[in-house]
């Protein structure tokens, strides 16, 4: 396994794309979170917004960059034909995918941690200036506040799971364009289904949709309004990511490259 990790790390480190994408993940998380905190207003004198979700909303955009990173590392080899060399050099295909998954997820966790810490810092600097008044238990995001800490750690884990999910989908779909489309659809389309007026159906979609369920981890207030608990939601998302990786691994092993 060390050999595979070393080889994959060399590939990732020696092209410019992955480093830029990782930098983008951290910066986009902070920038969008800071912008969201800055434009926050409290209509009708009531702030019903969750400060943790606002400050961490950048994750909803930087997740797309994480997906791109995974696709570049996995599908990119198919478009250049490098995959054949890779699999000739390292015939244990499961391990190749595992090495890619470990590296993409590990670097994502690092970039995600930087982004999430930056977002919380930005929110602590910006939110008090926007006239955001904290009523009934709404508090500034802080790492010493239990639910905020859970939201922060959970957001980093969420980005890591996005990396796993995307590696799995990219290995299954292979083509860069198709993989990009599939991942974007999985990440963003289910949130459109909230338009459905049937409340039971809506709740079930929310519980099962990977991003809706997964992002519940960011909620720190009004938890009863969510159809799923924060860790339960992240669990659902973890199940999706595991399924995607398993599918990718199975297809990689049973299909001609």
């Amino acid at each position: 396994m060390r050999r595979e990790l070393h080889a994959e790390w060399t590939k990732m480190r020696t092209v410019a794309g992955p480093a830029w994408l990782l930098l983008g993940v951290a910066l986009l998380t902070v920038a969008v979170g800071a912008a969201a905190s800055a434009v926050m207003t409290c209509p009708f004198g009531q702030c019903s917004y969750d400060p943790a979700r606002i400050s961490l909303s950048g994750v909803q955009l930087s997740q797309a960059l994480v997906a791109l990173l995974a696709i570049a590392v996995v599908s990119g080899e198919y478009s250049t034909g490098l995959i054949q060399t890779t699999l000739t050099a390292m015939p244990t295909r499961g391990r190749v995918l595992a090495a890619k998954a470990i590296l993409v997820t590990g670097t994502t966790l690092a970039a995600g941690t930087a982004g999430v810490l930056g977002s919380i810092l930005a929110a602590r600097l910006i939110l008090p200036d926007t006239g955001y008044t904290f009523v009934h238990g709404y508090a500034l995001p802080s790492l010493t506040h239990g639910p905020s800490l859970r939201a922060a750690v959970g957001s980093v884990l969420y980005l890591g799971l996005i990396a796993l999910l995307s590696v799995g989908i990219a290995a299954a779909v292979r083509d860069t364009a198709a993989a990009t489309g599939s991942v974007l659809a999985v990440l963003y389309v289910p949130s459109l289904l909230v338009l459905i007026s049937n409340p039971d159906m809506k709740e079930w979609i929310f519980r099962l949709a990977p991003t809706n369920a997964g992002l519940t981890i960011q909620a720190t207030t009004d938890l009863a309004a969510f159809p799923i608990s924060p860790w339960g939601g992240l669990g659902v998302f973890a199940a999706w990511a595991t399924a995607a990786i398993a599918l990718g691994r199975w297809l990689l092993r049973h299909r001609d490259a």
Partner: peptide, 19 residues
């Protein structure tokens, strides 16, 4: 000239702002 970049740019300019 690369799929991923073109798709993500289109997505980021049309679909994402709408969402």
């Amino acid at each position: 000239r690369r799929s991923a970049a073109a798709i993500v740019t289109t997505f980021a300019l049309i679909v994402l702002p709408y969402i």
